[in-house]
Amino acid sequence: MDNKQLYYVPNGTYWPIIGSVGVSTLFIGLANQMHGVEWGMTVMLLGLAILIFMLFGWLGQVVNESVSGLYNDKVDASFRLGMAWFIFSEVMFFVAFFIALFYARNLSVPWLGGEGNNFFTPELWNGFSATWQQIAFNTPSTTLQNGTEISVPVKLVNTWGLPALNTALLLLSGVTLTIAHHALRAGKRNNLIFWLIATIFLGVLFLGFQVAEYGHAYADGLKLTSGIYGSTFYMLTGFHGFHVTVGALMLTVILYRVQKGHFSKDNHFAFEGVAWYWHFVDVVWLGLFFFVYWL
């Protein structure tokens, strides 16, 4: 049997069960925390710690195996397929929230105003009428069904302030990352490190501005509790921000691995996988910029 056909099937591993314990502990802690149980936060952080321990251990093992040359092109292809379809599943997660956004903007909010065949609306909601931006200031009721008071903002986020700047930053970070990739393929290590650091810097800058923007929005009264506008705004941008954070952390790990000399000109799947992820985050942002901030 020639070498090409050998596929690396690892021996038994503890990491998955540790991961299961970690993620379950995290969720149990979080649920208890939300219900006001004292030990909730502690358990949640414990779960998070286990999860991080698992990620370091598992991925560290994979890195070691990769560096010691156990993997071949076949294994590489499996990793690529795995990463690509993982990103696709992430896209579909965002799709759920975009569906909510489009549905509210184009269907349910106009219906609340009596459009379409929902002729009971005027009686149910007292002649309420609104379009998408307006609904932030003028929700059908002042409290939600579960008693939460709805926060009415004084103004919305200005598209051409921080959001536009952030769009530029993220797009630029996509470019710097591509330059870094070219440097890697050309074997120019110093260029690679420089442009990788630039990418991480832009990502962190983006996150900083995003936090600042949240601060302004909150001060203006635009909160998670500002009805459907606030819900879609914060959930979409919040999950995106979380993904940028994860992406930036992954890029930092890649930077560390570059320093360690783990990558060669033609064998650097981890770099490419993280780059795909970063571009995915980038594209989601474009969707957010158009549909959440601009239109």
Partner: peptide
């Protein structure tokens, strides 16, 4: 957390 995706009082919709 007080979002209103499925609550018409906040402009959401249970049918959604």
């Amino acid at each position: 957390f007080g979002t209103a995706f499925f609550d018409a009082s906040g402009g959401g919709d249970p049918v959604m």
